[in-house]
Design a protein around this nucleic acid. Structure first.
Lengths: 189, 189
DNA sequence: CCATTTAACTAATACCTATAGTCTATCAGC
DNA sequence: GCTGATAGACTATAGGTATTAGTTAAATGG
């Protein structure tokens, strides 16, 4: 083996750095190879192609997001947990906008590993809602509302969709209040 | 002029068809030229390049969405208008998933025309909320909640993000109920 | 110490976007 | 009806991308 300078982890990490620094448009096998000081074909010893690379990045993104969420909500319940999770979610998206977009895009062709990572995320969100005493389908519908609201807000925010000169933190707080009140109302059934 | 078979509208329409039929990944100047029975360089007489083409498609998407929304809410107010708008929004996204993603992605580098189209959309949403008697900043924050919820839901839905075997229509209805109750509470201030 | 394997490489293919320059059919004005 | 300008197609070309095939050298294991 001629000086194995690369590992799959180094490749994925470099790809994450590249996308963080230069945006999702700049991510390519060529640019990645340049950054790693290597010729493009060498990358194919570690990833199957650009789609496989993105899949690995998505997996990394899902796991990192999950860790952040879990760290944020541990020890809290009910509204406190909701606010902590909301802030953590939004912070992650703002700090890694390109990765966030990539991660949440196209859950369609998710293999087993990706689905497991998504499932873990869902489990954490479910646990977070435990304080609201939501049962059965109501809890699942509530999760969907929660995910929609969070994903929609951060997507629009990082995409520059909120143009009005109006405090974003305040808007996000109101979004969380809306969720909180909805969960309270549903939970008291 | 050797038989001007192309016009800017034909080009954009063909691009929309191409993306609707084969997905956003299949959209390229080459594929578009093939579909139009023309050589790729000919397209450059009508659009500046692939980015300009996408810009034109985004504009078309924004305007179509706006028309659908306006047609849906006319004659209604309050909750009725909210439900009509929600259904129209979701229907548009489901019928043109690739166009929807393209339209709402990267509002960043929006030129004057795009911003105007976005503004019209916003104006229609504002009018729709009139029945809730929301005033000043409260109305603007409410719009952001509305957009977040709708955009998040349809994005996740068309991306296959909702995997649970649970009725999507029911989930969407609950999302609208959450918005409705929030607007009622805010409006009574 | 040698065989195997790993992971880099070079070379080549087949796309893609985009620009420059050419040619021809149409249209306006005479 | 002729002619000149122009619009809109074309050919040719440059340079970028992903990917595969085949080659070579280094490190490991028996």
């Amino acid at each position: 083996m001629p000086s194995p300078g690369l590992t799959i982890d180094k490749v994925v990490d470099a790809a994450l750095d590249l996308m963080r620094e230069e945006g999702d448009k700049a991510l390519s096998m060529s640019a990645l190879a340049r950054r790693l000081g290597v010729k493009p074909p060498s990358l194919y010893n570690h990833v199957k192609g650009v789609d496989d690379l993105k899949r690995a990045m998505r997996l990394s993104g899902l796991r990192t997001l999950h860790q952040h969420l879990q760290a944020a909500v541990v020890g809290w319940s009910g509204p406190d947990a909701l606010w902590a999770a909301g802030q953590a979610y939004r912070t992650f998206a703002r700090e890694h906008p390109a990765l966030y977009s990539l991660t949440l895009a196209a859950t369609e062709e998710a293999d087993e590993e990706l689905q497991a990572a998504g499932q873990q995320l869902l489990t954490t969100l479910m646990a977070m809602l435990r304080g609201y005493r939501l049962e059965g389908d109501a809890a699942l519908h509530a999760i969907r509302c929660l995910r929609s609201a969070l994903h929609g807000f951060v997507s629009l925010e990082i995409g520059g969709g909120f143009a009005m000169p109006l405090d974003l933190d305040e808007s996000f707080d109101r979004l969380l209040r809306m969720l909180d009140q909805s969960f309270r109302a549903e939970g008291s059934n």
